[in-house]
């Protein structure tokens, strides 16, 4: 019975040990999108942000053809929360990725146009990402298009 007296202390110790340190008010936003040509092996690499990854799975997801990357340029922009927004000319979707243990993990696939995005451009409009499709603006978050934002 006397042991019950120590339970609150034990729980407190466990709770303290499990709490994660957070550095908040972080801003991961890139000022301008990176427009990167996909190389012959299907890879892109960005010098300024020192990042590179394989795009074959992305093209397969979009076109069901993993070799569709030839002569393509990806447009990548990171939002304030650290999500990567990726699209390309004539893509139907904007893909939202997050970094996870040495990989880009898909968090959302935002459908934009059945006929494909023409002259796409991504602009940083924190907390949104502005997608320009044929001169028309759409405001995106990692969860989708915000139709209320004009």
């Amino acid at each position: 019975m006397k042991l019950f007296i120590f339970y609150p202390f034990l729980l407190l110790v466990i709770a303290t040990a499990c709490s994660t340190l957070k550095l908040q008010q972080a801003d991961f936003a890139w000022p301008v999108e990176s427009v990167i040509a996909v190389d012959e092996n299907g890879k892109v690499s960005d010098e300024r942000y020192s990042m590179s990854f394989d795009t074959k799975s992305l093209f397969f997801e979009e076109t069901e053809d993993s070799s569709a990357f030839e002569n393509k340029r990806l447009r990548i922009l990171r939002d304030i929360n650290g999500f990567y927004f990726i699209t390309a000319e004539m893509f139907k979707n904007v893909y939202v990725f997050q970094m996870d243990n040495g990989a880009m993990v898909l968090r959302n696939k935002i459908f934009v146009s059945e006929s494909g995005i023409k002259d796409p451009a991504l602009n940083q409009r924190a907390p949104y990402i502005e997608l320009i499709n044929s001169g028309e603006s759409l405001y995106l978050t990692n969860s989708g298009i915000d139709r209320n934002k004009k």
Binding site: A121, N123, I132, G135, E136, S137
Partner: peptide, 13 residues
């Protein structure tokens, strides 16, 4: 005009 002024930051840069 909104469409006219929707410009790419990347293109500006």
């Amino acid at each position: 005009t909104n469409q006219l002024y929707a410009q790419s930051d990347y293109e500006i840069s």
